[in-house]
Design a protein around this nucleic acid. Sequence first.
DNA 1: CTGAAAGCGCTTACAG
DNA 2: CTGAAAGCGCTTACAG
Lengths: 348, 348
Amino acid sequence: MGSTIYDIAREAGVSIATVSRVFNDSPRVTPATRDKVLAVAARFGYHPRALAQSLARRKTRLITAIVPIISNYYFMEVLAGMQDQLAESEFYLQISNIKTTGEVRGDDVRNQVEDIFKRGMSDGYIIISIHFDEADWENLKKYDRPITLLDEYYSGYDSVSVDSIEGGYVATKSLIDQGYKKIAMICAVADTKPVVERSAGFRKALEQAGLPYEEALLFYGTDIKRDGHTELNGYQAMKAILECGREFEAVFCNSDIQALGALKAMQEYQKYLAIIGFDDLSFSEFLGLSTMRQPMYEMGKIAIDKIINRINHPETDITHTIFSPRLIIRNSSLTTDPELAAKVEKVG
Amino acid sequence: MGSTIYDIAREAGVSIATVSRVFNDSPRVTPATRDKVLAVAARFGYHPRALAQSLARRKTRLITAIVPIISNYYFMEVLAGMQDQLAESEFYLQISNIKTTGEVRGDDVRNQVEDIFKRGMSDGYIIISIHFDEADWENLKKYDRPITLLDEYYSGYDSVSVDSIEGGYVATKSLIDQGYKKIAMICAVADTKPVVERSAGFRKALEQAGLPYEEALLFYGTDIKRDGHTELNGYQAMKAILECGREFEAVFCNSDIQALGALKAMQEYQKYLAIIGFDDLSFSEFLGLSTMRQPMYEMGKIAIDKIINRINHPETDITHTIFSPRLIIRNSSLTTDPELAAKVEKVG
DNA sequence: CTGAAAGCGCTTACAG
DNA sequence: CTGAAAGCGCTTACAG
């Protein structure tokens, strides 16, 4: 297939250095030579191979986003932000997907991430929604590549994330403020970072309001795909709530995608609890689902800024951008109890 | 940062050829030498750069999936299939995202796709949900790379797709079979491949049943993001249906994501038409949404098979795999009219 | 402004 | 089984 820089040089009667300069927009080329080279290149359908360029430059101009199963609906919006921010830069974005069967943890994920670093194909890496422990994060340092964490915090790398504890707190408090007292939480896979943090916020809100917190308020689905961030998991958890024999008025749900499943369970049981989710996925608005909004688009933009900045200035100080999630009240968490409703004003 | 093959060779007292052989699992290396090399490599934290390997081999062992805005929920499931099928192969998958503002057409998309080919970074390309015209597809031939189309058909490349005309026909017929006579269709952006085909099926079903077809049965939303495959677009289109002054009983909706928006519109108007979507996204089950199922996971697997086969055997005949979408009946399209209901048996 | 030459980090016949 | 050498397709000081 391909013609090389040598073909073009020979045909245009110049050296390969000149051809290279033309394609790198070097100012040190006469318009005449440039035109001649470009003409020949067009005739041959020549384009410099990114591969060879990267090797020679010792720079790939590539940023890799590492994502554990793109399924995360979350990622779609993050991506939009990354793309828009990338537009003006010289970098290309490539996405490497981490395959997960079941939980997003364990050696398998670790190995896949390391494999990506071993290939050494990118100037910088944005790691999204992967929650390693300290040792794992430290271990990545040996590859000596710029890293930005998104939806995760570790002191050793730049990061952008949302304060999940605060989010769990605000969500639960919004329920309490509406007059609900019997509140459960739908978790995803236990010991998982989002769950640990959001349930901590849940607990804090309850205790602050003088409502007793117990483990028994936490409900789990059994589906562990995507760490339990699935419709099915939420459906199962809500079923557990409705069948546990205990009365609940409201539910704080770990994620919108789970809330979608929870909604179905409520319909099946014809029993409607107030519910508030977490994320604000694009469909949540159309479900009338109250939620804690994560500024995903913004986070994507910021992650790109951070990684580019670190690629260009490796020695700058590490920074962490932490958003407070925003409360979005829609119908799903509004009380239907007229007595309670009287005390509440619609917020969003 | 990194040590190179030279460092390892020197330290291990062998030639770089031997180091290379060790890392390429060549059988022609004594266990002793192999161990020695591996030990040194481990100590140095050495890994061959994929970049340099690719250049020397003139093979990248990389397959690139080109996707117009990953947002397409559709893609998530396709990806799962691709990953599973890739597991046993020697290839890596990388995803290149096409940025789209508004419609997925025009020069901008064309240029982005071409840029990816110009970089020449992959051994093969799977192009997903991009609908070019004949000239555009032909134009890509000049890059002389293996290409597989997914969710698109063009005779010049291997492809895997779903018969959308058939899908539109079966969906509409299912509505007719249930006794509905006043049926509208929610389209996405007009002149777009899915819309053209599905509305053709819609028309065919009507005419075959002796129901008059008119343009006025086709409704459009104004949001053109993702070619109109958005919740908002469906919401707008359903509003148009409910406000047009004409009575409808049922709706065939171009995609599940739009159906989600349509559902909201119906709720707002407290007017419930039977509705059937297209795709069977993961949440559709939890919405009780009837739909035409596309075997996305399977399609992903097949696309990988095809591209790998063509990479390894460039001269094999071109093949097209075309699925008939499967009808999934859930609550949304079941009639509530007891008279009609009597004639219908629940299918799915 | 242009060219000759070294170098990027590997692989792979070709000998031995 | 192992090594010397050429080659993959570029970029980039260094001269001029």
